[in-house]
């Protein structure tokens, strides 16, 4: 289990990169664990992205691609980068 300090350090490190607008770590149930965005935005993004990850994983399984490692959503505002792990999902908004 990842500790509180490690989470904070990861957030700080990722948030310090150029163009990063926000970093969220959420569990697989869509409940945010850590974030550097406001609470309301964090809750909405966590829920929606987790739902999307679930659907994307089902697509990858159906296609027999052997699992999903990373998901990128390209938008006019920049990028939403999603890294799903076994118990957590890391979401980075950049652009």
């Amino acid at each position: 289990m990842i500790g509180g300090k490690a989470l904070k350090d990861s957030l700080k490190r990722l948030g310090a990169h150029d163009g990063v607008r926000g970093v969220i770590i959420t569990n697989m149930e869509g409940l945010p664990i850590s974030s550097n965005l406001n609470a309301e935005k964090t809750e909405v993004i966590s829920a929606l992205v987790t739902s999307l990850v679930g659907k994307a994983k089902r697509v990858v399984d159906e296609l027999g691609e052997g699992g999903m490692n990373f998901l990128t959503i390209s938008t006019p505002a920049g990028e939403v980068m999603v890294a799903p792990e076994e118990d957590y999902i890391l979401i980075v908004l950049r652009g």
Partner: peptide
């Protein structure tokens, strides 16, 4: 097994 975040929203 449900997405609690989505249910809440």
């Amino acid at each position: 097994e449900v997405n609690i975040g989505m249910i809440r929203l």
